[in-house]
Design a protein around this nucleic acid. Structure first.
Lengths: 153, 153
DNA sequence: CCGCAAATGACAACATGTTGTCAACATGAA
DNA sequence: TTCATGTTGACAACATGTTGTCATTTGCGG
């Protein structure tokens, strides 16, 4: 068989990955819960937030979020159909229209943001700022490492 | 507007959640990459691993993995159709058949496990065992907190 | 200016996960 | 035993994300 065995730090890494994937499931559910009273979901919230942050095309937004262009396009088209988002002509590119929030989109996003603040404040106090920052640093470092690895392949 | 604003620890929590969701995307991709040479995916790997760990029914496996019963059922049916997994009669329950790995399923899982060990060892060494264990502890604590909250609702 | 590579949106197919519903089975209380 | 309740598998509908393909647009190099 000659199975390569895991080192202690390899074991720690494997357990870490499992815990991250499990937590991600919980966090997506929580995001849906925060967005639901405004008729939205985690995915739509993410796109609305990106649109408010700065005026971007769909493809630019997808890159910023680390998602496939086509998935963001589908969400954005739904949001446009529901009147939360509007496509504006892009002077620099005829096809790549720019996403802007409508007043209704602004309102929905603000409601969700308000709920999220209460939620994040409570859990942030519970878990402790310093521990969260240390964990975030590790996680971001690892995500960058994996992202770069993929980019260089 | 009277928007509730985020405290410093709330801010830290919000950044933490974003980093976790982002990393989860990378980890799923990496899992697919590890499983792909054996013709599998992250989701199938997870079910195969659960089946090897102990002989469970589909519903029990879903609970152990924190997923919906129906999703695991679909994956398991595919694995059975491909001959990696077999349903065995359950003496304790006529409908809830037990999943067992076939030799072909064992072989596939072992290949993936071998690749995963190399990968986890390398990244574990890179990130450091102690940091990973501290981060895992925080993440598991939070996942438990969120899980309990949902259960009590 | 021309032509070609890259970016972009549109469309389709698929993988993974969710919820809802239903009938069959298991279990415990009356 | 019988009935209510919960568990389980099966099926359908949907949300979210992926990859692949195509035509159009952009922009750059010759």
């Amino acid at each position: 068989m000659n199975q390569p065995s895991r080192t202690p730090s390899g074991d720690a890494f494997a357990e870490f990955t499992i815990s991250v994937l499990r937590l991600a499931g919980h966090l997506t559910s929580e995001g849906d819960r925060l967005a639901q009273p405004s008729g939205q979901t985690s995915a739509r919230w993410q796109v609305l937030a990106a649109a408010r942050h700065s005026t971007l095309s769909v493809a630019e937004t997808a890159r910023a979020l680390g998602l496939a262009r086509q998935g963001v396009q589908r969400i954005a088209d739904v949001l446009e159909a529901e009147g939360l988002l509007a496509y504006r002509q892009n002077p620099a590119h005829q096809r790549a229209k720019l996403m802007t929030l409508t007043p209704s989109g602004e309102a929905a996003l603000q409601e969700i943001t308000a709920r999220q603040a209460v939620w994040a404040n409570a859990l942030g106090a519970e878990m402790g700022e310093e521990r969260l920052r240390q964990a975030s640093a590790l996680i971001t470092e690892l995500a960058t490492l994996l992202g770069d690895r993929r980019a260089s392949t």
